[in-house]
């Protein structure tokens, strides 16, 4: 499903966040990206989601060469990916419900069909009762769950999560990992970056360790 071959990402100024990295992720896999901060985990996720383009090498997702994708094609590519951010990137000027509605709205869905899917997603992350509140009133764990609901509402086959449990206490982190495992069990491919080794031990799955932009065996 995801194939990176000899991928290098060099930022202006010469810093190589990812260097000569090759990696294949099959459909339905649960993959943890680990490594110290600055090891290139976030950059790798951004390369897969076409938020960054590789300096050299190929990133192929679902048979599409993401690095060479034309700008007008990007939105349609991204609609197949659920993105979960460490800083949530929620919109604080609208309700919990409207935050989750946004991806469906962007895809042209509206009315009762969309509302049903939004409530299903909110139900999955346990926020159904808070649909009318503003995200600013939610706790950190709830905000992260809201971000997850927004990522899965359009039922993507691939979910990318960047440090989803970084700022959460243990109980919340376990909640969220349970959710991810449930998604994986219904066939969703998940790539999760984390520096929490204990989490990986507890949940199993494939672990890809990065150091200075390179794979560590």
């Amino acid at each position: 499903m995801i194939e990176l071959s000899d991928v290098t990402k060099r930022y202006p100024g010469g810093h190589e966040a990812v260097s000569h990295l090759s990696l294949t992720i099959e459909q339905g896999e649960l993959v943890f990206l680990t490594g110290h901060s600055g090891a290139g985990k976030s950059t790798l996720l951004k390369l897969i989601a076409a938020i960054e383009r590789p300096t050299s090498g190929n990133v192929v997702v679902n048979g599409q060469n993401v690095g060479r994708m034309k700008r007008p094609a990007l939105p349609f590519f991204r609609r197949n990916i659920g993105l979960i951010f460490q800083d949530h990137k929620l919109l604080y000027d609208r309700s919990v419900f409207d935050n989750v509605l946004l991806p469906l709205h962007i895809q042209g869905m509206s009315g009762s069909d969309a509302a049903k899917r939004v409530r299903a997603a909110l139900d999955k992350v346990g926020l159904l009762k808070k649909e009318k509140t503003r995200p600013i009133t939610l706790s950190g764990g709830e905000q992260q769950r809201l971000c997850i609901a927004r990522a899965i509402v359009s039922r993507p086959a691939l979910v990318l999560a960047d440090e989803p449990t970084a700022n959460l206490d243990d109980a919340y982190a376990r909640d969220i990992m349970d959710m991810f495992r449930a998604f994986n069990e219904v066939g969703v491919t998940l790539v999760i970056s984390t520096h929490d080794q204990e989490l990986i031990h507890r949940y199993g799955g494939r672990s890809v360790n990065l150091a200075y932009g390179k794979l560590v065996a």
Binding site: P72, P75, R78, K89, L91, D93, L102
Partner: peptide, 16 residues
Amino acid sequence: KDEIEVAQLIGATDRF
């Protein structure tokens, strides 16, 4: 800016 950034990340076209 935030809204535009998020919308772009979750697949909004320029037109949208």
